[in-house]
Nucleic acid binder design. Structure first.
Lengths: 195, 195
DNA sequence: CGATTAAAAGCTAACTGTTAGCTTTTGGTA
DNA sequence: TACCAAAAGCTAACAGTTAGCTTTTAATCG
């Protein structure tokens, strides 16, 4: 009931990392579709059920290392200076996330994701959950003065910016371009503008 | 090699409809997750492989009757009067689609969809394909004068409007609200505004 | 220390959507 | 009539995922 001294948690984390690392290595070596869960379990020397006790699905293994999108976006809303405007804060965060996922060091992973319909679909569905979480954070800030519907819309637009930018020739320029549009949409959602 | 007299096509269509009808009935009776493909095949008196030769997946059985979202949106872009502005045309189309799916006659189906994570995920992923198709139609219209990135962003925003409206208390009002934002975003994407 | 507890990992066996490979039926055509 | 190709069927399997139960092991307590 008291504080665990940590060995258990360390071992658990080690198992988790071993599984994720093994999976990613195999995926990159042979291709996502060519590697089965049973292959991963065997190579990581764990049982299949252990894989699923750490990861909810095969796809989740790939996005394990994904810097946490959701928390960063929430943080950009909740942790900003009193007078700091919302949209530029979100733009900065999306810009950082786009830069992070276009870095050379993770390029092979993203090439793999782009090459697999299952992974693309999983990612979009994940981003949608992130958008809902972002919308909730925005709706919880009374200083913004927008309707819940407007918050949900803008939250989706922000996630769209990420997706559109990722497949654009110049991702960072695309983020700026889409955010000029989002800025205008946000202004139009102001109560003062609605009549 | 010449014109088939039609019996074959009629029989094929009949099989398809029988499968879709049986599936929908079972889903509504017992719940989506409680009905397996093997159940549907048995009840429709066809082989499992026949089900999959007509429908790509279990989820696709549910969206069979969905009025074709994709074509309607493309049509709103391609088939409008020379001087008719784009965004209001799209708003009208989305308005019609939202009205259609909130009608009482299809309410149980949408309640089922909303109750199943698998179906919600499938729908969003389907809408995303629709958005890509819409973006292509927009990008193909030289009169619009917007970048491909802006077209992709607006296409996603339009599909977002549909999704946000569907879960709003007053769906039709939500469509109008989100489209005021989209109108502003579209204006901000005009080359004249970019500097 | 030794006994105990609960988390973590393991094993087996299944279930479910989906597909491959091959055979049979059947509508349309020469 | 004979033939072709589309449609449907059958069997068996594969892959992701889960349920149920047992074994191991880190942490706690008498």
């Amino acid at each position: 009931m008291t504080e665990p001294s940590g060995r258990r948690e360390r071992k658990k984390a080690a198992t988790r990392r071993k599984i994720a690392d093994t999976a990613l290595r195999l995926f990159l070596e042979r291709g996502y579709d060519e590697v089965g869960i049973r292959d991963i379990a065997a190579e990581a020397d764990v049982a299949v059920t252990t894989v699923f006790s750490h990861f909810a699905s095969k796809e989740a293994l790939v996005f394990e290392q994904d810097s946490n999108f959701e928390e960063n976006l929430r943080g950009a809303v909740e942790g900003r200076e009193p007078a700091e405007p919302l949209i530029p804060a979100l733009r900065g965060e999306i810009q950082a996330l786009v830069r992070h996922c276009t870095a050379d060091s993770v390029a092979p992973v993203w090439r793999m994701i782009d090459g697999s319909p299952a992974l693309r679909e999983y990612e979009e569905s994940m981003r949608l959950r992130h958008a809902e979480s972002l919308a909730a954070a925005m709706a919880a800030d009374p200083g913004l003065g927008r309707t819940p519907t407007a918050c949900r819309a803008i939250a989706r637009f922000v996630v769209d910016a990420y997706s559109v930018a990722r497949e654009a020739a110049d991702p960072e320029a695309a983020v700026d371009e889409v955010f000029r549009m989002i800025e205008a949409a946000w202004a139009a959602a102001s109560p003062a503008v609605s009549r």
